[in-house]
Design a protein around this nucleic acid. Structure first.
Lengths: 236, 236
DNA sequence: GCTCATTTCAAACGAACGTTTGAATCAGGG
DNA sequence: CCCTGATTCAAACGTTCGTTTGAAATGAGC
């Protein structure tokens, strides 16, 4: 099935196997232009491989896209769950704080953004954009990939915030994922909103350090159902 | 330039002028499949008009997309700013609450979702997805359309939260826009997160009533810069 | 050194795309 | 009634798309 050709004795950092070169090029180009607007010819040219290589190694363009996502999303979500388990074991039977749970979500993403020099950041952008893509095969794929992790984290938040009704918590988790993916996608809408310190905008750690307190406060907000109701919003 | 053919005496709800039929069909299909994956042939067939009509009336596919967005986005953002001005005038020289400012952002969006029977909800979904689209012409268009409104609202939040540094506030405004657009886009990721009460998920008013307290609490959170620092996140 | 399965390659496939063209159709004013 | 400008229409334009094909190249095992 898989070929193990040269053991790559000491080639500098160039020309890993064809499959990886396609994945790297596809990751960057999908991130830059989106799925539909990125042609296989663009990808294979950038990767320096033959056009037919994609269909040979991956089967189709859609399967290539899923392979691009799986390669990094799978380990990242596994890391998230492991980190959450570590925190929980360390806390004994006391519930975790929201900040700690959010840290279990963010740290693996940060690790990804830093480890692979450019690849990681490209991937997070790509992931943020995939969230908003209407293509059914993307939506189903993400549901499959995220299902287990989300369930674990919802349970953790549920213990951390016992006074928040389950349904309300589901919504807030949805908002958290929205703000996170929007932020990681790093769209240039930011240029409109802030006066845009470019050197800081690219610093993901600082970015998430700002996002976490924001989200933690939102998660802890009194539930509309528990504080007697009548919020001013939308009643005017 | 524009033709005013029949005054449409009492045609039930069918066959407005060609331009509107194209806009309606395009709005729904762009929402459903995205910009790149929606062909002009699909749009014109759904609208019951000739293929060439798009290029005749709008010039190109890109200009059609911008026309779809402008048609509703323009009035909505104008409504938002007017509502904010109304609230500010009513409050005299006291700063508005975060909830009130958020209401000025949400209510026009809700009005849009309700007024035009199906069109409005389609549009909000489309708008949420356009936020994440990498196409340069979309990004530039949104920057142009949103610039003025964002500036107004940032000023309002700045008065409501004088203890939050300007830069921190810019980030939080970014998070607010992210959560809002993600929520309005209404991706099915939601199906993963919550156990999904379908009849409630489609109720935008309830949805935004949950989102507003969440965001208001996040906006009011102590700034990492002002509370002496050392947050637990990311230090583990 | 031949074998055979794996991988690469140039070339082509049919389909679908956005856009253009030029004639047909229409409505209203002289 | 024809003229004029605006709109619709069928047809075709050239390009690009994802995928397939069949032969050439490759490399490990006997």
């Amino acid at each position: 099935m898989h070929r193990l050709p040269r053991a790559a004795p000491d080639l500098p950092a160039e020309s890993p196997d064809t499959k990886s070169r396609i994945l790297d090029a596809a990751e960057e180009l999908f991130m830059e232009h989106g799925f539909e607007a990125t042609s296989l010819r663009l990808i294979t040219t950038a990767a320096g491989v033959n056009l037919a290589a994609v269909n040979y190694h991956f089967g189709s363009k859609e399967e290539l896209f899923q392979a691009v996502l799986t390669r990094r999303l799978d380990p990242m979500n596994r890391d998230r769950m492991e980190l959450l388990s570590t925190y929980e074991a360390h806390a004994g039977d006391r519930p975790l704080t929201c900040e700690k749970i959010l840290a279990a979500m963010f740290i693996p993403a940060l690790r990804l953004a830093r480890d692979h020099a450019t690849g990681g950041k490209n991937f997070l952008k790509l992931l943020g954009r995939a969230y908003a893509d209407p293509a059914p095969f993307i939506r189903e794929f993400l549901s499959r990939q995220y299902g287990e992790m989300i369930a674990r984290f919802r349970a953790a938040f549920s213990r951390a915030l016992p006074h928040i009704p389950r349904e309300e918590l589901s919504w807030r988790l949805h908002f958290v994922m929205g703000a996170l993916s929007f932020t990681l996608a790093g769209t240039d809408v930011l240029r409109v909103i802030s006066q845009y310190h470019p050197d800081e905008a690219s610093n993901d750690e600082l970015l998430l350090k700002r996002l976490a307190p924001f989200l933690a406060a939102g998660l802890r907000a009194p539930s509309p159902a528990e504080d007697g109701g009548h919020h001013p919003l939308l009643d005017a």
